[in-house]
Design a protein around this nucleic acid. Structure first.
Lengths: 162, 162
DNA sequence: GGTGAAAGAAAAGACTT
DNA sequence: AAGTCTTTTCTTTCACC
């Protein structure tokens, strides 16, 4: 919790997570601040690292990747782990990967143009350090990415539940 | 594959996925086009649905959510499924959820301020339709979200592998 | 940290190729 | 579709509160 947020910061972050494709003027109006102050705030949020990047969310299916597969992966020994981590970085079809603690060791997101493409990527992973591999074919978004349930940093510890 | 892309579209989408916080002028220079043409292209990509939204990627840990947990969930009967889907929509700590085909039925992303907060959310899910629930605590990003490995839509079917 | 105004930059539109 | 030019609008900075 490195960054302190007041109510306006929370509003700004919530708005920007939903749609960052707005002019500073619109944003200022939305949060009830002057354009100049809004600009300052947003810059501060970027510099502080609260906002990592602004990026375009591309519809994978619309641009030729109708298949998205999530994979839970375990690796055996240190050698396999190393191979696996390298392979994940190299394969462009792997669009995200996380290290996790639990029943499995990694969570990997793969996109594919077709079943053949998919099979190729899964095989590569299975034969490059992947031990147990469980795959899940993404069917649909039940809840699309939602803004974080932010709260202002109160001096007296905040606590609220949804 | 609803949207046809040429080489410049691919460049634009790749750039915008990495950083959409640039002026149209900079973007135009990057892809080697005039500002007006670039503006047209980007608008077209938004209208066609290739670009879903432009959004701020917020660092959850930096703004008070040090814990991210992925959950694989199965629901039993139709009644449990309905309860579960409703709960997922209601809980603000659930920041994303997907329907998947495979060993489990859902993939859910949860953020939490602390272990207590997390326990609360996991219990809510487990007691609202969640059948078998497997949780994975996110440790670190192995491969941060990467642009899709886009290719221009050639008339003769394109095919390339990484 | 905020406001308001003025200068500079970028986006939007019309026209040409 | 793309380039250039002009108009309109937004962004940015600065002086002040």
């Amino acid at each position: 919790m490195a960054v302190e947020l007041d109510e306006i910061d929370v509003k700004l972050l919530t708005q920007l997570q939903q749609d960052a494709d707005r002019t500073n003027l619109e944003l200022a109006e939305l949060v009830g601040l002057s354009p100049a102050a809004t600009l300052h705030r947003v810059r501060r949020l970027k510099e502080s690292g609260a906002i990592r990047i602004i990026s375009a969310q591309v519809d994978a299916a619309a641009v030729g990747f109708p298949l998205t597969v999530f994979m839970a992966v375990t690796t055996g020994n240190a050698r396999a782990t190393e191979r696996f981590e390298r392979e994940v970085q190299l394969l462009p079809q792997v669009v995200a990967a996380e290290t996790v603690a639990g029943e499995m060791d990694y969570w990997v997101t793969v996109v594919a143009r077709d079943v053949e493409d998919l099979e190729h990527t899964l095989t590569r992973i299975a034969t490059h350090g992947g031990g147990r591999v469980v795959t899940y074919l993404r069917l649909k978004q039940l809840k699309p990415p939602t803004p974080l349930p932010l709260l202002p940093s109160s001096t007296t510890r905040q606590r609220r539940r949804g």
